[in-house]
Design a protein around this nucleic acid. Structure first.
Lengths: 89, 89, 89, 89
DNA sequence: ATGAGCCAGGGGTGGC
DNA sequence: GCCACCCCTGGCTCAT
């Protein structure tokens, strides 16, 4: 159903307002997240590392392994040891 | 505070889980937004234009701020700081 | 040393080194820019405002594009595509 | 030397133009970098991983080790040891 | 500690 | 219908 000869202002308005409402919610949640990081920081934790942890947990382990494999491959090609705990090449 | 270094596994876990929960919410809202655009499209509207409308409505307040900034810029350029404290040397 | 998988260490190294070289150049230019701002500041100008001026001059062309986008928006909303083809759907 | 009662238009113009010139250079270099990544990609390499490699090479090894140590600490606290598991709160 | 500038990654759009 | 390009948002760094 295409509003070909004249759009419906009401419909447009409704859509736009729904979206704007949702974007407000989204921003609120983002701010909450930011707040939690701030709290963690105030408690003595490193927010940056915390973000990294969250990111790692989000990754599928399989994915991660694959990415690491490729990375290792490249690093190896460059003569750089694969960044493990016994460091340095 | 258990694991020696002032790092509490419980605290970390709590922070991470709160964040993860909030990120799920955030994603849900993002998906809702996407859904609304899809609905609008199905109704015959152009999602791209709708996005533009939303963006424009969001920018309008910002534009006013920018206008004020430009005013200040010119006042400053004329050596007439806007009647406030703290002009730098 | 070609690690089997179609990965050529020489190629990787070449790419990486080219990139690193370019990033050095880029950093040098960034530092030059920073230097000019510092100079301006030392001469008595406000670097922040100078940045704003530069940004505004950069945005002016973009604004025209935006204006055109808005025009298209309204034309589209009226069912009048920009003087060309029919309508979609 | 503060141009307090009347800025020098010439000076401002000169600063702005020097900056704009440098920013053009900078953009040119950025484009070159992008070009190299594109080339690498066309040759069959993964640009994302390549970026990672470049970033890793840029990091001081010490820095990296420290960051990894903290990360390990947190992961361990969460029971996500990077090879050995079995921690739990 | 806060805020701005810079940069990289992700999402959306147009082209093949 | 999928892929590459581009814009834009979010994170990191550094200066105040």
């Amino acid at each position: 159903m295409v509003p070909a000869n004249g759009v419906s202002a009401d419909q447009i308005r409704a859509f736009v307002e729904r979206i704007e409402r949702l974007e407000e919610e989204k921003k609120a949640v983002s701010d909450d997240i930011k707040g939690v990081y701030g709290e963690a920081k105030a408690t003595g934790y490193d927010a940056k590392i915390l973000r990294l942890v969250v990111r790692l947990r989000k990754q599928e382990p399989a994915e991660r392994s694959e990415a690491e494999a490729v990375l290792d491959l490249y690093l190896h090609a460059l003569g750089m040891a694969p960044a493990m705990e016994g460091d340095e090449a």
